[in-house]
Design a protein around this nucleic acid. Sequence first.
DNA 1: AAGTGGTCTAGACCACGCC
DNA 2: GCGTGGTCTAGACCACTTA
Lengths: 234, 234
Amino acid sequence: MGKPVLPTYKTIAAEITNRIHEGEYKSGSYLPSENQLAREFEVTRTTIRKALNILKERGTIESHQGKGYRVKLLHWEQSLLTFYSFGRDIAWKVQNPETRLLSYNKIRGLKNINEFINTELWEITRLRFMNEIPLILETSYIPVKVMPEFKEEDLKQNSLYNLLKENGVHIVKAKEYLEPVLPSLEDQKLLNIKQNTPLFQTLRYTYDSNEKLLEVRESLIRGDHFRFSVEMTL
Amino acid sequence: MGKPVLPTYKTIAAEITNRIHEGEYKSGSYLPSENQLAREFEVTRTTIRKALNILKERGTIESHQGKGYRVKLLHWEQSLLTFYSFGRDIAWKVQNPETRLLSYNKIRGLKNINEFINTELWEITRLRFMNEIPLILETSYIPVKVMPEFKEEDLKQNSLYNLLKENGVHIVKAKEYLEPVLPSLEDQKLLNIKQNTPLFQTLRYTYDSNEKLLEVRESLIRGDHFRFSVEMTL
DNA sequence: AAGTGGTCTAGACCACGCC
DNA sequence: GCGTGGTCTAGACCACTTA
């Protein structure tokens, strides 16, 4: 009746993931080589490769033959942008990305979210532009306990992920739900669209390694400039 | 200056994929064991495992310790249903799925699709129900050359994938694009919704192994009963 | 008990990037 | 030429399923 022990390769994958979180292996830098890691963990290269492959499939790192494994930058935000890929017929370049902070307030609790009932929350609303066109309207809810303070400047420049990271909070998992919706009057004004322009509404729930809810984010994305794409095989 | 030879494991993965397509390994049945395959292909078990893992990640097969590798049934249709998962707060069971054939006609060419210009096409419109609620309105375009004939019954009962398979056509890849849209007057009637009920519109392009376009399908999916979900790690 | 997939070791050779 | 990741071999032990 001992503890069910994780296979080594998963343990190692988790350990390396941690080191990336903790900043020991920084975004954009190269990991130690397979051989070095094999010596450190006292396993064979095969086992290390299996561990690294997990991170590679997740999109956390990328491998380059002859060079090494590199920690990808902006993993999430980036994969979201390729995920909702750009418009119907346009060969846009994502230029001049800009974020405008619309408001931030302390509120108490959030209906429909059990985990946030009777919790003091930041409500942060931001508008994201590309090529000077307003494309995404985002509202985030974050417990004040999780992020006691922040500067206005940070919300414009940095991603929330990096902000939380600097506060010692490590995001590990997110679930996202997507639905088609129509804009409210206010949405129409902010996004500069008509009432019959359909939108993607996404709801994202972000968790730390203890399954604690860290952020709820609602995004409204203009359907006339973004689309989803998926590829399937077999 | 020899041909660049594919790595063995990819070749084997392709070969096994083919056998599934050809019906040698049938949906729902078990593959030969790793050891048997290793003997047949004259490689080690490790190489066979790597090949099978590719199919496993794609969702083509599933593995069961102590039993073997099983070919999944209805791979695509199924993954689409878990992909667009069900409604906001409902614990629906997917019951009484039903397909109603609305119309099928021969038409000539499809604007905006270069591959189908001056091509004789079937235009097949179907309405899909679940629990007696109309949820998806689908229109497919298939070259008459690809599927010269079919019975009305088949379109109600079978999936197009199986129909094409029986015609010796092997689907290999599909790209799908997703956008939010509003219903036309006719859509409103057929799907029994109001004009302000937003929909997902999906465009799916299906290809065979020679990259030839086999089918273009437009689906309109009720946004009030379906939603997308995605999970991300790290 | 025999067969299957799941994990790991120890060692080999190849293809690629870089100095 | 050397170090890196990519592929493959040969063999071991474990965990699970079935008879």
